[in-house]
Each structure stands twice: as structure tokens, then as C-alpha cells.
Design a protein around this nucleic acid. Structure first.
Lengths: 194, 194
DNA sequence: AGTCAACTTGACGCAGTGTCAAGTTTCGGT
DNA sequence: ACCGAAACTTGACACTGCGTCAAGTTGACT
């Protein structure tokens, strides 16, 4: 579109991201985002059809800025299942803090808004794909615990790495990010491996 | 207060519980509850100050009807830490489906409503107390994994048994209740025990 | 008959989303 | 330098759902 690095659209997306990330406001309103982007509330609707679309576009913005693909590449390129698992937990676990605000926003809108639900389901499906590939590799290597089917193992891996679990341990239990990743590494290895 | 088994208050609480439990309505409104209890919306406010109070009272109603204390008693009376853990996972894990609707309602209101937040934190604190007692017993017996501090072990136990994790595995992954409890039993034992 | 509590009906204020209409500013093209 | 379109502003409004208020109605108990 434009080569200008600071188009209004970019500023809106950046403001949305920031507003959702700092937990100072319990519920981020359209007017909050607007004023923090330095425009009127109505101008938001010149760029995004509604709140849901704004949140969805913000997730794409974050993906672009934070280059999630490159981050997950190390997991995909690792040779052994164990290495893939470790790299994935590291990459995804450290990505959650970046997307938490928007993820939370989408999750809450999912209750009433179909578009939000679809978008959030899509994100989860993409994340699950990564988990599935890891479990498949482990299973092929015969390293997967006999306690679960591969499907269940994928479910468990996803549940452990869910945004909800991250929030629980970080927000409610006060864990720091480094320890969260460490413990997930340990726990998932003892849980999933034979 | 009253010996009448079907006071309006009881009917309201029952309706609230049912309405929140069956996931047919994405967001349960005060008017939904009222009509399902066979009264006017305004009459709700003759019995409960607001939505938050109604939800809180509903949790107490469920506790009373489902006799959660008796359910958890087996865990408290078990002699070994392992037995306590198993009994607790069984009792709590099978209690979550009962309270899920109200729990979810309180969690969502917690974003904006302080009373809801306090109430939900209270419920979690009570649940955590049980987890803490189990971890303490395991620790005393020297059976707790050296990988975490007792505090971290309690956090992990709580996170595994959280309503969010239950919802993830049941709703999103389609697990059935029996398998959920089984897997939690296995997973938590391999995770927490030495 | 009188009173009191429980309940109803219908109205209103409030917040937040989304829409509409009428203006103003900015900026590129000629 | 001017025109016109795009971007943006201001101010209004509809809609939903919560919570409040006021004026009735009903029905049981005395």
C-alpha cells in the first residue's frame, strides 16, 4: 500500500496492540484506542469495519512485526522430536506474551461474535499444527508415552501451551517468563515422553 | 430461612444454574434468567442486588445442593499423599462440570467487576488450599519431585485442575469427563511425584 | 376491610458499539 | 494556484444490556 512507515492504519494497529498489552485498563474500548492513536473514534471505522476486524488485523500486524514464522523455523528444522519439542516450547512460550492482549480480546469477543470465534479458532488450529507435527515425530521415533494416543498427546501439549495456562501461571501465580518456559520444558518432557 | 422447597429465590438460583450450564445461549442475560424462572426481570432485583451477587449466590447454592464438602472429605481423610492427590483430582475434576457455567460467568465479569473478581479469587483460594495441603503431604513424605519448589508444585497442580484447562480439553478437544479425570490422574502423578 | 410483601408494567439513565450526515483539512494532480 | 478526492472531525442517533425508579396489582394474613 504505502511506503510511509507511520500511516494512520499502522498507528491504529500499534495503539491497539499497546493498549491491549498493558493491563492498566480492564477493558479496552474503541475510544481508548482512537485517542491513543491520536484520531477520533469514528476514524477507526474508516480503517476497520468493527472491533473484531481490528483485533484480527492486529494479530496479523504482530505476526509481521515479531516475525513468528522465523521464530518457529528452528523447531521445524530440528532433526529429533525432542529437539523440535524444546524449540517449539521456547518459541511459542515466548511468543504468548506478545500476543496475549489481542488473544484475550479475541477470546472474550468469541462469546458473542462469530467472526472473532472463527479467527481465534484459526489461530489455535495453526498452533495445533505445530504441536501435531512434534507429536507425530516423537511417535515415529517411538519416544511418545504409551499413556496416551497421539491425538491425546497433541491435546495435552496444546493445553499446556495454551494462553489460558500461561495467564494462570504468570498472572495468578506470579511466575516469571523464564521460569514458565523452563517448567513447561520439564513438565511436557516428563508428561509426553516414554 | 423458609421451609418451602420452591421459593422464588430457589427457583431463580436453579434457573441461573441451568441457564449458565446449557451452552445454548452464548451470553446469559438477566432477562433470560428471569423468564426462565417465570418472573419479571425487575423481580430479580428484589432478590439479588445485581448480576454479580446473583452469580455468587448461585455458587453457594450449587455447593449446598451438590455437597462439595462431603465430596472433598475423602481426600482430606486419606492417609498418604498419593491417595489424597488421587481423591482430590477425582472429587474436584468431577465438580468442575457442575460449576462451570457460573465459574465462567464470574470469570468474565471479573474483568470489569471488583466484587466478581473477589468472589472468584476466593473460590480459587479455597481450591488452592486443598492443593497446597496435598503438596505439603507429598513433600513431607519426600515424594515430591525435586524439579519444583512446593509452591511451584501447588501452582502447577492448580493450573492443571483449573476450569480453563478443563474447558480446553472438554470443549475444544472434545474429551469426555471420564477420560479427562483419568489423564489428569496420570499426568499429575508423573509431573509432581519424584 | 386493611395492611404488607411479593410481584408487575413501563419508564428512564448509563455505557459502549456501530451508523449516519454534514462539515473541514490535507494533499496530489494539472 | 486551483480543483477535487480522500482522510478526518464533530455531533447526532439507534441498539443492547444493566441497573433504577415509580406506580400499580395481587394475595395472604389479621
Amino acid at each position: 500500500m504505502s511506503s510511509d512507515v507511520s500511516t494512520t492504519r499502522e498507528r491504529i494497529l500499534q495503539s491497539t496492540w499497546s493498549a491491549l498489552l498493558d493491563g492498566s485498563t480492564p477493558r479496552v474500548r474503541m475510544s481508548d484506542i482512537a485517542s491513543s492513536a491520536g484520531i477520533s473514534r469514528q476514524a477507526l471505522y474508516l480503517h476497520f469495519a468493527n472491533r473484531t476486524e481490528l483485533l484480527i488485523e492486529t494479530t496479523h500486524y504482530i505476526d509481521r512485526v515479531k516475525d513468528i514464522d522465523r521464530r518457529l523455523a528452528r523447531s521445524r528444522s530440528a532433526s529429533s522430536g525432542l529437539e523440535r519439542l524444546e524449540a517449539y516450547i521456547d518459541a511459542w512460550g515466548n511468543y504468548i506474551p506478545e500476543i496475549y492482549g489481542v488473544a484475550n480480546g479475541l477470546m472474550m469477543m468469541s462469546v458473542t461474535d462469530d467472526d472473532a470465534r472463527l479467527a481465534w479458532n484459526g489461530r489455535l488450529a495453526a498452533m495445533r499444527e505445530g504441536c501435531d507435527a512434534i507429536v507425530a515425530t516423537l511417535s515415529r521415533e517411538g519416544r511418545l508415552s504409551h499413556r496416551f494416543t497421539p491425538l491425546e498427546a497433541t491435546d495435552l501439549l496444546c493445553a499446556h501451551l495454551s494462553v489460558e495456562t500461561w495467564r494462570y501461571l504468570r498472572d495468578r501465580c506470579g511466575w516469571n517468563q523464564t521460569r514458565y518456559v523452563e517448567v513447561m520444558q520439564q513438565t511436557l518432557k516428563t508428561t509426553l515422553l516414554e
